[in-house]
Every structure is written in structure tokens, then in C-alpha cells.
Design a protein around this nucleic acid. Sequence first.
RNA 1: GGCGGUGUAGCUCAGCUGGUUAGAGCAUGCGGCUCAUAUCCGCAGUGUCCGGGGUUCGAAUCCCUGCACCGCCA
Length: 511
Amino acid sequence: MAFYITTPIYYVNAEPHLGHAYTTVVADALARFHRALGEEVRFQTGTDEHGDKVQEAARKAGLPVREFVDRISASFRRCWDEMGIAYDRFIRTTEAAHIRVVQEVLARLHHTGDIYFGDYGGLYCFGCERFYLERELVDGRCPDHQTAPTYLREENYFFRMSRYQEWLVGYIEDHPDWIRPERYRNEVLGFLREPLEDLCISRPARRLSWGIPLPFDERFVAYVWFDALLNYVSGLDYPDGAAFASFWPVAQHLIAKDILKPHAVYWPTMLKAAGIEPFRHLNVHGYWQMATGKMSKSLGNVVEPLTLISLYGNDQVRYFFLREMVFGLDATFSEELLVQRLNADLANDLGNLFARSLGMAFRYRQGVVPAPAEAAARDREVAQTAREVAADFLRLFPELEFPKSLSRVWELVSHLNHYIVDTAPWELAKEPAAASRLDTVLYHLLEGLRWLAALLQPVMPASSRKMSGQLGLGEELFRPPLTRVLTWGGLPPGTRLGKGPPLFPRLEAVK
RNA sequence: GGCGGUGUAGCUCAGCUGGUUAGAGCAUGCGGCUCAUAUCCGCAGUGUCCGGGGUUCGAAUCCCUGCACCGCCA
């Protein structure tokens, strides 16, 4: 089995923000999940570096474009590195290999007649780098820039996207989970009920020089989306690379809802025209709505990912992202919600469960995993719950049901907390005759913790390792496949437990 | 303007193809335990299921309509 996940390549006209971080964390968690299962995994992210807005941002920053894009791209890369994002490939659209693929595809589509030369006249907004229809304007001005567009009549190259509309509709109808969740599939189908226009895929070089030149006409550069989307295959060394052969057939894209159209319409029709099989899934997520209002520099409520993790911890933020946002829907972000969630789930439930369990193992058994005697009914319930939770988690997580899969795991956490109360080890410890009963209880408890550490590795990789360390297990707990690790009784009696500080210290409430 | 979505306890939300006293988590109040990060466990709630019609023996769940918010398209 192979697994290929991509984030969008991020546009380098601004620094990484919360939304970028969410997408990237989700991709990373999925990649880790599939690696844990022992699958061959490829995870690609990167930066989108061409186009008008980049050129403009560089001008504002007073830097040569090349230097500017190097700087912002590095900033994204550093952000992901500091967040422990384990990507396999960081692609930049300014790489020679990528440019070569874009030009190769352009040349081919030009040759087959899917790209043609034509002209188009209309009202053009330089800020948006696009034409507007009369009716889209607000008081005759661009709705985004509040500037009056200019009438331009110009010749350009067009991609014959309309030719593939019927095919695309059929493909979406035949593959119900191709675009998911369903709401976005419906949105695309709704959009495709109207006739599809051909896509203008060139920009005159005299207006925009920062782009990939069309191989058949140097007076033009490629439209940024035509350039950018191809990263998903150029990063696999399309057309001849081994990576392309093994990973493209299982490609899954991860995007935010704002770039649905390019990914659900432009990209598949481009692939079809180029004779490349469609990707396997387009996974679309929603937005983080700031409880403080729309994020803006002037409001001073911009949340920088690195600031956030330095305040609350990387795994903590990852957990919050996955636990709090139903994939596909919008969710609310505030530090207050974050603190609430971290205290309730991580400090009180999970962290405290580890602390009390390990505490008893040290106090009553000198920090050595005892050998269990015969399991009683109550003990078998623990094992049974662990199995059921793990089975659900393994099914739900790859289907992007993150809150559901995690709340299932927390049912195991809760079950173990109940188990402690039900069995009252501190009472058993007083009774010498109950020694083997205490051994059995402690063993089941610690084995339950081992399952938690293993299950949570895609979500909280560093914390999982701390948990494993406290259980005296180290890295072997994470050796794939996870399904083999999840065998009840895998914790060897006699293992020396490790002492450690609280996994998730309680946080003070913020106002 | 067209299409679609959402509206359920203070908060975040489950409730699929209609059927026992409408649920979970968080927050709140009270009680218990003491292994633990003032943590854990138990108990207690409160809801005109957006409003109004209708179908039905029976609707949060289906139909119509109104309102509010949101998204996509124009």
C-alpha cells in the first residue's frame, strides 16, 4: 500500500498563518498515520512563487523578486521544520525541474489543440490580475480593490476546458467520494450545471514578467494556477520518475475551501487533457473563524503558528486543530477555547491518567511492570474497550473523521479512569493477600496506556514518545505496523518504567 | 436573482431512511475517593428541538411557508 498526500503550495506573498498551519498539520497527521500502518508514504508541501501578487509584494518589500521569494519560502520551510512537520518533499515552483514539467505540458496541450490562441476583451483589474464582468463590479469598481478596472482587449492563450466539462461531471457522479466532504462535491456539481468557459492560461510578459514563459510563445508567461497545480506531479518527477509511478495512483490533495474551483475543475480537466489519471481524493476543509473577528494586522489578532506553539506546545496545538474542527466545516478559534480543551482533555483526563497510573506503579511495585494473574471480568472489559476503540480509530481517522476518532480514544481514557476507581488499587495495596490482584490491575492499566501512546502517535508524536518513555518502551512502540503493536498483552512484565514530569501541565485560563 | 447549507441545553455539537420519559462533552451546583497535574468518580439539572401551517395513530426527524445566518454561482 502507498499513500500520497499534498498540501497546497503556499503563495509567498505573506508569512505562514493559522490556516496554513492547520492544513499542514492535518497532512502531517495523515502521513504519520499511514506510516504507522507500515505503508509507503509520500508527503509533499511547498511554495507557489510566481505571479503578479508576488511581484508586487517583492516591490513593496523593496527586494529583488528572486531574493524575496527565497526569503518567504524559507520562512514557510522553517515554520514547518519547527513544528516537526515530516514532509518528504518541499517543492518550489521556481525550481528548474518544475518549470520543465510545466513547459512540457504546455507544449503538449498546444500541440494537441487543447491550448489555442484567441483574444478576449473586457474590464481588467490589475490588482486581481483578472477580467471582470460588468455585473460583478460594485459601482463600476473592483469589489476587492475599489479601483476602476481598465478596458483591455488582448490576445492570449486559452485552455479548452469546456471540452472536458461533460467528462468531469460524469467522473464526479461516478465517484461519490472523489471530492469530499459531500457539501463541496455538491458545490462543484452546482457550478458545473452552467456551461464551462475556456480558461485563459497566459499573461503577456510585458505586464507580468515573473512567470514561466510559454515554450511556444515567449511573449507570454503561464497563468499562476496552470503553473502551480502541476507541482503535484512535477514533485513526483513526472513523467518518468519512479515516485510518479508509485504515488500518483494514490494521490490525495488537501485544500481549504477557498481554492476549491482550481482543484476541482481546472486541475482534473488539465490532467485529463494531459492524459494523466485523476487524483484519488480532493479533501476540502473549512476556515478557522477568529473569535476576535477577522484576522488582521490592524486588529492585532493575527495568530502566528510559531508563537502559538511556543505558548502552548506543538502537540497541544495539533491536538486542538484535529479535535476541534470537523473536517470540512468552519470552526472557531480562540486561545480561551484552546486552553479549555487542553486542560480538560490533555491535563485532566489523559495527562493525569498517566501520572496516577505511573505513580501507583512506582509506589506499589517499585516502577516495574508486574506480571498479571488471571484476568477478571472487569479486566477483560478494559482489553475489550481498547480493542473496540482502536478498531474505530483506525477506521475513522483516515476518513478524516478527526473529532469522532479522537473522542473515541478519549472513551478509552475515560474507561481507564473508571477502572482505577472501580478497582481501587490503594485498597488492594493494603491487603497482602490481594497482591496478585493488584499486579493484574496495574498491568491492565499500564497496557491500556501503551495502547493510548501508540494510537496517539499521528496526532501528538512527541508526547507519544514521552508516554512510551514513561512506560519504559522507547522507539519500538512505533515500529510499524501499528496493527501488530495493538495486541493486548504486548507490554512485557518486568519492564522498568521511566519517571517523567507531567505530560501536559495545566494551563492558567486566559481572559 | 439562482442553487445549496445551517438554525437542538449557558457554550460546542450528536441525533441516518419518522416511534419508548430528546442525548454527549465542556461550563455550573452538590456529594464521594485520595493513586494522581485542586486531578478522578457519582448525582443534579434546565431545553417553546428558529416561528407558522400541514401529512400521520405518532415529527427534532417528512412536506409547505416565513425569519435569521452562511456558502457557491450569477
